[in-house]
Design a protein around this nucleic acid. Structure first.
Lengths: 212, 212
DNA sequence: GATTGTGAACCTATTCACAGCA
DNA sequence: TGCTGTGAATAGGTTCACAATC
């Protein structure tokens, strides 16, 4: 088999692809052309067997005896993740966290561009962050007409998050990154990822407590 | 069985406990005293069977016919997560993200308090964020002498993160929440959780692309 | 009658181990 | 000889379904 297998890629594998991508980038900019599953896995913090099985879902493009050609690997991962274009993202809720994200390196990186900043507070609407004007949430449909919003990032207080999710769904945004501490109720077609600070701290607290 | 089973709690269960905690809090402040696994599960976005099995690892304290007593449930979860004290946390790297976290509601919530803000930039050291003075990273050992840092939060650029992780390990901080895009190499006893903005967007991008 | 607690069945993910190829 | 790709074995997690019991 030499072309990408159309076997379904497991969710856990998808979650690791960005890590492999970074490992490949790092080694590439350190001047390497190829790397073994062993080295890549070490950099990614997984076992070599896991990495090999994960990559096998994208097709088999390693070379026995010498490993994976890094730029090819990067290309395969980018293609799977859809990073060959710059998807427009909107950030809704421009408080401290929203502002920080608007200028975060991760958000300006390959594959994405901040297309809109939205809020409902009249004191905030009209300000500029990182050269982008903050619009009123009501402008979302007009905004989405001009450039379809691929991913909505919710950084509002908890009580506003569900309503914002609905507004995003209404303009056919099919992916939401939610920082608000609520479980969003959305249609089946919408992909949601939750990032929660309190949750992360609580999980760490558990592990700290149950050491030994 | 009526006291907490000392069966090992699976990792996935631990990751869901904070969500159950929130669901219980919400229902409690809506005036309810008890709730069924069905209702709680709906609020938490999991199946009722999963929730019941998860809670059974903490002991069996539901009441057949009427569900779980919410304040007791909350107490059990808090005890497991170690939220009966306020653990001191340190944030290292006080850029936009570090500042946002320092004043984020999730970080001031039950179970934690921001005990130290650290950076290496002389322009930043000495400033105050949310009433807390930013100290130089070199002050970490002195700081940790006064109050043992339970959790370190790394919000530095990628290149500095590994060194900071080492400094935290040196002062016996056994839990790290890492926002920098690197896989940290730490000793076996240290619990690490990674939160990465670029990674989250890339995962969402995949799911959007592979809808249908 | 309502709802939990939990074995048993099922499904998913990781690790092993080695044949197959450069 | 070195390293990938992958079936087979194992471990871990979810769902089913129903007896127990308030």
């Amino acid at each position: 088999m030499s072309e990408a297998a159309s076997r379904r890629i497991p969710d856990v594998t998808v979650e690791r692809l960005p890590v492999y991508r970074r490992a490949a980038m790092d080694l590439l900019s350190a001047g390497m052309r190829a790397a073994s599953s062993d080295l890549l896995a070490k950099r990614a913090g997984v076992s070599a067997a896991t990495l090999r099985k994960d990559l096998s879902y994208l097709g088999s493009f390693g070379t026995r005896g010498s490993g994976y050609e890094l730029s090819f690997l990067l290309g395969q991962v980018d293609r799977q993740l859809g990073l060959d274009r710059a998807w427009p993202i909107a950030i809704i809720g421009i408080g401290n966290l929203g502002r920080a994200l608007a200028s975060a390196p991760g958000f300006a990186g390959r594959g994405f561009r901040v297309a809109a900043l939205l809020d409902v507070d009249p004191h905030v609407v009209g300000q500029f962050v990182n050269g982008i004007e903050i619009l009123h949430l009501e402008e979302l449909p007009r905004m989405a007409d001009k450039s379809q919003i691929a991913i909505g990032v919710i950084t509002t207080p908890a009580r506003a998050a569900q309503e914002v999710a609905g507004a995003l769904e209404a303009v056919h945004t099919m992916a939401i990154l939610n920082f608000a501490p609520v479980v969003l109720q959305v249609g089946k077609g919408v992909a949601v990822r939750n990032v929660e600070l309190a949750t992360e701290l609580q999980i760490l607290s558990f592990h700290r407590l149950h050491r030994f």
